Amino acid sequence: MIIFRYLLKEVAKTQLAVFFVLMTIFISQKFVRVLGDASEGSIPGQMVMTFIALKVPDLAGMMLPLSLFLGVLLAYGRIYADSEMTVLHACGVSEWYVVRVTLVLAFITAIFTGIFTLYLAPMASEYQYRVKEELAADSGLSALVAGRFQQTGNKDAVVFIHDKSRKDNSFNKVFVAQLPDENSVGDSIINSSLVYAHNGQVFEDESGSQRLVLGDGIRYHSDAENGEFQSVAFDKYYIEIKDQAVEHQYRKLSALPTSKLFEEVEPELFAQYRATIQWRVAFPLACIILTFIAVPLSVVNPRQGKFAKMLPALMLFLGYFLLLTAMRSGVEKQAIPSYIGMWPVHISALFMGVTLLMRERTSGRKIKAKLPKLRRNKAHANQGKAS
């Protein structure tokens, strides 16, 4: 029991450290992208952390198998490099016992990975689509940023404000260009109405439409028919810009709940649904399969160091992931039957892991030692028949 807790603790501690490092790196990359969208005005600044949080379930589901794989390699690699595993083997601890201990942590990791990939990630993706739809339906007046030209959601006007007060949502030094109707022929931006006001404020009624009320300003307008240029001073000027109706975007399959993927669908979507199901199941399943590969690969010589087999192990993991991606694409394009799917990749990886494990076990060494004798006996028998 002491050995069980020791091995489990070492692998779990290393796995958590690797997981947090990987999550920090990838979340930082997402953070930079979201900040870029916020600086361009695509999303409000207060929604940055929301979009980052919605990326966490998808990233966590992908990083957990990798963190387990690297955690096993680093933890057992250190134990082998310090000759601790040699002592444990001398005390009767077999390679299969080490695998069984690691499988306990692998099953726990697979459960959490399944929660992320099968439930939380689709739910977060769906919520992200809803937020984007609401932002797209917004007229843009409530999300105006000082010092930037912004087009309203219905594309009827361009607004520029010099300063904005967050307390009462009022503006100072407002410029508005009311664009000509798209259906009108011969109109240009020169013929649009230009309004400048010293102050302004946004009001929203019960129907959801927003009204920009400008005060103490001048409206300029060019009459193309009469060739006249008009300038009108005003105390109050109302510009009503209604919110756009919410348009439901096309939902990617990543946003669909797993339960809906099992429902009957049109024949042309059947392959894509099955590919998505197998892709979500692949990550929890990979936690179990990668354990059989990581444990034998963690066996290193004390003189080699604990990082001796890190590069070939990472290449195996990368090949495993790329093959899964290729098989998923093949199933979606109906080049590979859906009942075959990604299972050949899983079976091949499992066979490789069992083969590597048998080479390290005593029974595997005995079989390996008997193979040359069997080959020689077979060769002698063939020579006897020939003579």
Score class of each variant (00 low, 15 high):
131 V>N: 03
117 T>A: 12
119 Y>I: 15
110 A>H: 07
134 E>R: 14
119 Y>V: 15
127 Y>M: 13
135 L>V: 11
130 R>N: 11
124 A>V: 03
108 I>G: 05
113 T>C: 10
110 A>W: 02
140 G>I: 09
129 Y>R: 04
126 E>W: 13
137 A>G: 04
128 Q>H: 05
121 A>T: 06
121 A>E: 03
112 F>S: 06
108 I>R: 05
136 A>I: 04
129 Y>G: 05
137 A>M: 07
124 A>F: 06
127 Y>S: 13
121 A>N: 08
129 Y>D: 03
120 L>V: 12
128 Q>W: 04
115 I>L: 12
120 L>P: 11
117 T>P: 13
139 S>I: 02
121 A>K: 00
118 L>Y: 15
136 A>S: 04
129 Y>H: 10
118 L>S: 15
108 I>M: 06
114 G>Q: 09
140 G>Y: 00
131 V>R: 10
115 I>G: 11
122 P>A: 13
126 E>F: 14
124 A>Y: 01
139 S>F: 00
117 T>H: 09
130 R>H: 14
118 L>Q: 14
115 I>Y: 08
116 F>I: 02
139 S>D: 01
114 G>K: 03
108 I>E: 10
111 I>N: 06
129 Y>T: 02
140 G>D: 03
121 A>P: 07
111 I>F: 12
118 L>V: 15
132 K>V: 03
111 I>V: 11
134 E>A: 04
138 D>V: 00
132 K>M: 10
134 E>V: 11
119 Y>P: 14
127 Y>H: 14
108 I>H: 03
134 E>K: 11
124 A>E: 01
138 D>S: 06
119 Y>S: 15
116 F>L: 05
109 T>F: 00
124 A>W: 08
139 S>K: 10
114 G>H: 06
128 Q>C: 10
133 E>I: 08
109 T>H: 03
131 V>M: 02
132 K>L: 07
125 S>D: 11
123 M>W: 15
111 I>S: 08
127 Y>C: 13
113 T>A: 12
114 G>D: 08
109 T>V: 02
137 A>T: 03
109 T>P: 09
122 P>R: 12
113 T>F: 10
119 Y>F: 15
114 G>S: 04
126 E>R: 13
125 S>R: 11
140 G>F: 05
133 E>M: 08
120 L>W: 11
111 I>P: 03
113 T>N: 05
133 E>T: 01
139 S>L: 01
110 A>R: 02
116 F>D: 04
128 Q>I: 12
125 S>C: 09
121 A>R: 00
119 Y>L: 15
133 E>D: 09
108 I>S: 09
112 F>T: 07
116 F>C: 07
109 T>K: 06
135 L>A: 03
108 I>Q: 00
118 L>A: 15
122 P>K: 11
135 L>H: 06
122 P>F: 13
112 F>I: 09
136 A>V: 00
123 M>D: 14
131 V>G: 01
113 T>W: 09
